[in-house]
Design a binder for these strands. Structure first.
Lengths: 350, 350
DNA sequence: CTGAAAGCGCTAACAA
DNA sequence: TTGTTAGCGCTTTCAG
């Protein structure tokens, strides 16, 4: 491994000059520049990142802190974040918190130790402390997925209340009136979506039957169990909304096992996925624009890194209601194969 | 941000002593140790990684290089790799190559620049050059998913030939005899799986009808298109095997649109997924043990980092055939809801 | 426009 | 058992 000294020697210049050529900050004569570039090529020189980082107190590391990269919503975001990062010379550190504030804090500390340039984070539900931790780091940060009031941080979200409201509204319009919900209780997002659903109900002079709402951990198993419990109530619901893709998958498993007829029983969930149009009947979803979220977040982060004085901004993206069969109580029995579905849907999640 | 000097001053000792206490390598008296630890706590001191890395020519960075983290097979592996890494003090750099050798090479160079301690990689199809690049780095490396002959590298794989053979064997036993295949052409894995399928056919004195085999890029869209093409042949196939989860999803879309009756027409693919048991009919799969692959790979990597003199080893894990309805030509029409499916299947991929 | 030299924060000889 | 010190490879004043 050749160092900057070797290059300097080979080019017959000082290390400072080599550094200048590489960074392109200062003016260097054409002649010298060429000599240096030749030496760089010759020696196959690549600057040592640790040395650079130590000297500049910066790094090209960006932390991506999410609950679980295996959640397809996050993996799609992660995919795009990494793409944009790569295009801009940044590397992505992957951190899975499982919504555990301890882990989250540990990762944030590591980001500080690494002199991370920036962080993209979907903070855990312990919002206040968590966000305080982030702000105290003094590292440029973009929040995703979970909005935090009054946080002096950039963020990109969807309007959860509105999206949930529209989804509930849709179900009501389809004629369901005893609607149950399973909600991810680990994050702020779940609470907002609950509120949106409630808003829709209220505007119809309705409300949630309390024992038809379950705040649970956002895992497949939990969605499965909760759905089974809900369907064993005396006063059974006639529809179910799940507030994320994992809960949705668990719910479908349960509905299948219990042989619940859909869409006589209505079902819808958040997040589009590859399988939502493929299960039978196909599933109505509120699709979050994951790709756009990821791209926007990384771009905002780069802007923030390059200019810390920007005023903080929040980007709210619109989620899209995709109506499919699982809530189509009005016109039952149109065969699956005749319903078109998007082959290349940008929001789609595996 | 306090440095080791501040701690040394506060504890009234030298920086060397502080370093010794922190690393635990040399003996330090109890008394001094306590003073140092108190100072560390007091100042909320955390060692600067760049400085440490520069000095030791090591880092705690591990690169995870895969085609696409949004492929649920890789995202599950990534999830586990990151877990094990975290437990052992390593951080994971995420790299998506899209099977592009250029990108792969770029990421490998970055790993070198970062003094990465290790790499876990599913190499692209340009095997020889790619693996040479890896070996030339001199960084401990574990291959996953794509076996490379004669590579002086650790690896953890499944026996692709055998797994594909068993899957094909299963289809033949179910009475399908004009079986088509869509195969990921971008990686070695696809070729091995092709060979396994061929082996099974040969042992029945059969062979592939050449225009019923398509080597394509492993994307959903490509699987979709290829399936449509295959079903427009004069001599239509009576079954289809897809060699990975993305191709499988695309195939199902196409089969749905064309209103192909399953399991009269047979379908199976590699990789279990959350939706495989939920689509209708449920899909027979050859499930790869993704969690085990990820865990084993990271553990092997740590071993290799700690002892470069170990002899190289290959771990071959067994894939599991999960028979579901989509190949169940023999007993048609058992209702979905009555077929049990695993709620917490370890291999399951979203 | 270029060079000399200091120093980022840490570890590891070597000394004591 | 502890301290002194050199130096990892780079950038960035400051001089020229």
């Amino acid at each position: 491994m050749s160092s900057i000294k070797d290059v300097a020697k080979a080019a017959g210049v000082s290390t400072a000059t080599v550094s200048r050529v590489l960074s392109g900050t200062d003016y260097v004569s054409k002649e010298v520049t060429e000599k240096v570039e030749a030496a760089v090529k010759e020696l196959n020189y690549r600057p040592n990142r640790a040395a650079r980082s130590l000297r500049t107190q910066k790094s090209n590391i960006v932390g991506l802190v999410v609950a679980d990269i295996h959640n397809p919503f996050f993996s799609l975001i992660g995919r795009i974040v990494q793409d944009v990062a790569f295009e801009n010379g940044y590397n992505v550190f992957l951190c899975n918190t499982d919504e555990d504030p301890k882990k989250e804090e540990a990762y944030l500390k590591i980001m500080r130790d690494e002199n991370a340039s920036g962080i993209i984070i979907a903070p855990t539900h312990q919002t206040t402390q968590s966000v305080e931790n982030i702000i105290n780091l003094g590292i440029p940060t973009v929040l995703i997925d979970r909005q935090v009031e009054n946080a002096e941080l950039d963020g990109v979200f969807i309007d959860n209340i509105n999206a949930a409201k529209r989804l509930m509204e849709h179900c009501l319009q389809q004629g369901y009136h005893k609607i149950a919900a399973i909600i991810g209780g680990g994050s702020k997002t779940g609470k907002l979506r609950y509120r949106g659903m409630l808003d829709a109900l209220n505007s119809h002079n309705k409300s949630f039957d309390k024992n038809k709402v379950k705040f649970i951990e956002a895992h497949i198993d939990d969605g499965y169990r909760a759905t089974k419990e809900l369907l064993q109530l005396n006063n059974q619901p006639d529809a179910l909304i799940a507030t994320n893709v994992l809960l949705g998958a668990g719910a479908i498993k349960a509905l299948r096992e219990l042989n619940i007829p859909i869409p006589e029983f209505g079902f819808a969930c958040f997040d589009d996925s590859v399988w939502a149009p493929l299960v039978n009947p196909s599933v109505t979803v509120m699709a979050q624009p994951a790709i756009e979220i990821g791209r926007t977040a990384m771009e905002m982060l780069i802007n923030r890194i390059n200019n810390q004085n920007l005023s903080y901004r929040e980007v709210i993206l619109r989620a899209e209601l995709i109506e499919r069969e699982s809530t189509n109580r009005l016109i039952i029995s149109s065969p699956v194969a005749q319903r078109p579905f998007p082959i290349n849907h940008g929001n789609s999640v595996l």
